[in-house]
Design a binder for these strands. Structure first.
Lengths: 334, 334
DNA sequence: ATGGAGTATACAATCGTTTGCATTTCATGA
DNA sequence: TCATGAAATGCAAACGATTGTATACTCCAT
C-alpha cells in the first residue's frame, strides 16, 4: 500500500551514486553545492525520507534519546502532577531542535530496568530519567555500567550520576523570604520531608527563618505526599485545632491549591489573612484562579539543559559539573 | 567503553549458528526447546539484547508507535492540562504490554507534519494523534496517504480517519442530569463551543435540560478556552451582574476548579449553594480538595483501545468501526 | 600537451538481524 | 543395517543506509 522510496531510487533519478546522495543529504562539504541542491529538490519531490533503522544501524546511533518517567507505587498520584508532562514537552522540543527523537517509557513498577533496556537495544543513545526518589541505589548501579544518562532531581550526595535540577534549598529560601517580607511570621510547611527534594526545600525554609531571626515552631509542618489527597482535611484539622497561621509554604502547587481551598472554607482570605506560596510553577499555577504565587523551576530550561548535557556526554565530553542548576524565579500573583 | 555484545558472539558461545539464536530468541517453534532455553540462559548471563535498529531494518518494522501531541498556538495552556500526560502514560503502558516502544513528538507549531515524518522514516509503524481540534483537514490529507494512524477525539462527520474517544454528547447529558437530579435548575455552562468536543458536550447539556422540561437560558454560557486563564474573573463578573445560578457544568476539570474558587470568593458554598460538575477525571480531580464531581473519560482504557486498534490496523485487519467509545462514569464526590 | 593538485563522484564493505532454503541429525520401521 | 521422513540446525542473501578509499574530472602552470 505504501510505496517505500529508497535512497537507491533517488540516486538513479538524480543520476549519481547512492553515496553521493547520502553525503548530499547529510550536508557533507565534499559534495558540490549545486548537486546537493538538485538532490535535495528531487528528494522533496518524490517525498523521500532517510530510513531511520538503516541509518541507525550503520551509524551505531539511533539519534534518539530515551525518557523514563518512573511512577513508583502511587502511580496515579505522581502521574497527575502536571509537572511531568511539562517536562516531556520541554525535553521533546529540546531534542527535536537537535534532530533527536524521544522514546518515552513509563515503567509500570519500579523494579523494571527500562533504562538498561533502552540503552542495550540501541533504541536510544542516552537516557533522561525524571525523578530519583526511591531509586537512587538502582541508578547508582546503572551508573557503573552506563554513563550516558542524566537525572532530573535534587542534588544528593551519594548519587554517582549526573543530575540536573533546581537548587531546592535556595528555592525554599526564596519562597520563605517572600512570605517573611510580606509580614508572615507563623508559617506552615506542607510536604513530606522524607522525599529528598522536599527535604531540601524544608532546609531552605528553616534557614530563611533563622536568618530573619524568627523562631520556627517545628510542629508547623504537615507531612503529606505529593498527591495531596489528604491535604484539604489535614490543613482544616490543623486550623480547627486552634493553630494560628499567616503563611503557608507548600512544597508543590498541587498542595498549595488544596490548602487554599481549606483556608477559604475556614473563612480565611488568601492572601489577606494567609499568604500561600507553592512550588513548581506548573503552567496551571498562573491560571489557577486566583493565580498562585509559586517558585518557578523553569522546566523548559531544565529540559533543555538535560538534553544538551546528555548529548555532550554522548560526544565524550567530560561533563565536569555533576550538578547543574536551573533558574529559580518567584512568580508573584500579587 | 560499552561492550557491545552481538548475536554472533552469543552464537559462538552457544556453539550454534546465529540463525538458530535468532529463532530461539524469537520463540520460533522450530528450535528445540532445550536449545532455546540454553540460548536464552546464555543471553541473560552475558546481558545480550537484540539490536533494535538492525532488527527493525530487516523486519521492516520498528516495533514502535509514534504519539503526536499537538499544542497549536496556546502551547502553554494545552500543555498544562494533566489530561495529556495521563494519556501518555496510558498509551505507553498499553504499548509496552504489546512489546512496542513509544516515540513521542510534541510539534512546536501545527504546521509541522510530524506524523508523516515518523511514518516515512520508519521510526514508527503507526501513529496515535491526540486531539484534532483545528487539524481535521490536515489529518484528512494524511489519511489519504497513510491509514495507519488513530486519533483521539470526538466523532466528527467529515473526519476520514479512525477516531477513539468518549461519547461527548452522552457525557454532557450525564453531567447535566447529575445536576438536575440534585435539584439544580439554573445551570451555567463553561467552555468554548467552537471546539468540536466541547460543542458535543454542550449539545448533551441542552438535551438533558430539554428532556427534563427545563427551559435553558442561552445566556448561561460563558465562552472560554481550555486554558481557563480568565475563568475566575468571568465567573465572578457573571455573578456580580446579578445572575443567579445553582449549578455549573464545566467542560474541563481545570475550568471547574477555577469556577469553584470564584464561587467561594463570592461567598457561595460548594456544593451547598451551587453544585459543580467537571469533565475529564484527570487524576487530580479526585484529590482536588474538596474532590470534584466529574465525568470520567477512562483515559487508561482509551489509551489501550487506541493502541490495540492501531496494531490491528497494522496487521491489515479491517477496522470496521470508525469510531470507538470509551466508558463514561460519573465520579461523584458527594 | 602534460603533470599535478584539488575537487567531485563512484565503488564496495559494513552495520546486526531475520528468513527462505539447503543440509544435517535423528528416530523409526522395514 | 539402511532408507525415509521429520525435526533441528546451518548457509547465505537480504534490509537501506554510511564511509574509507579509489577513481575521474577540472583547471592551471609548465
Amino acid at each position: 500500500m505504501n510505496k517505500k522510496v529508497t535512497m537507491l531510487e533517488l540516486a538513479k533519478i538524480a543520476r549519481v551514486d547512492i553515496s553521493t546522495v547520502s553525503r548530499a543529504l547529510n550536508n557533507s562539504p565534499v559534495v558540490k553545492e549545486s548537486t546537493r541542491r538538485r538532490i535535495q529538490r528531487i528528494a522533496d519531490e518524490i517525498g523521500y525520507a532517510v530510513n531511520a533503522p538503516a541509518s541507525s544501524l550503520r551509524r551505531k546511533s539511533a539519534r534518539a534519546i530515551g525518557m523514563v518517567i518512573p511512577l513508583d507505587q502511587e502511580a496515579e498520584q505522581t502521574m497527575s502532577d502536571p509537572f511531568y508532562l511539562e517536562m516531556v514537552g520541554a525535553v521533546s522540543q529540546a531534542a527535536a531542535d537537535l534532530d533527536y527523537d524521544l522514546v518515552v517509557t513509563v515503567p509500570r513498577d519500579a523494579r523494571q530496568v527500562a533504562e538498561r533496556r533502552l540503552l542495550n537495544t540501541g533504541r536510544a543513545d542516552g537516557i533522561i530519567v525524571i525523578g530519583q526518589a526511591a531509586r537512587i541505589e538502582r541508578l547508582n548501579e546503572l551508573a557503573e555500567v552506563h554513563s550516558n544518562f542524566v537525572v532530573w532531581g535534587g542534588r544528593i550526595k551519594r548519587a554517582k550520576y549526573t543530575t540536573v535540577g533546581s537548587d531546592n534549598v535556595k528555592g525554599g529560601h526564596i519562597a520563605t523570604s517572600h512570605l517573611l517580607e510580606r509580614g508572615a511570621r507563623r508559617i506552615l510547611f506542607l510536604g513530606d520531608p522524607d522525599l529528598p527534594e522536599v527535604k531540601l526545600r524544608y532546609d531552605g525554609f528553616l534557614k530563611a527563618q533563622k536568618e530573619a531571626g524568627i523562631s520556627h515552631d517545628p510542629s508547623y509542618l504537615l507531612r503529606m505526599n505529593f498527591g495531596g489527597r489528604t491535604t484539604y482535611n489535614q490543613v482544616l484539622d490543623f486550623l480547627r485545632a486552634g493553630n494560628k497561621i499567616d503563611g503557608i509554604f507548600a512544597s508543590s502547587d498541587l498542595l498549595a491549591n488544596s490548602a487554599i481551598h481549606a483556608l477559604v472554607a475556614k473563612g480565611l482570605s488568601v492572601p489577606g489573612d494567609v499568604r500561600v506560596v507553592g512550588y513548581d510553577n506548573i503552567g496551571q499555577a498562573s491560571m489557577m484562579t486566583p493565580p498562585l504565587t509559586t517558585v518557578s523551576q523553569n522546566i523548559s530550561q531544565g529540559g533543555q539543559m538535560m538534553v544538551e548535557l546528555l548529548l555532550a556526554k554522548l560526544e565524550g565530553e567530560k561533563v565536569n559539573s555533576r550538578f547543574t542548576k536551573t533558574e529559580l524565579i518567584v512568580r508573584d500573583s500579587a
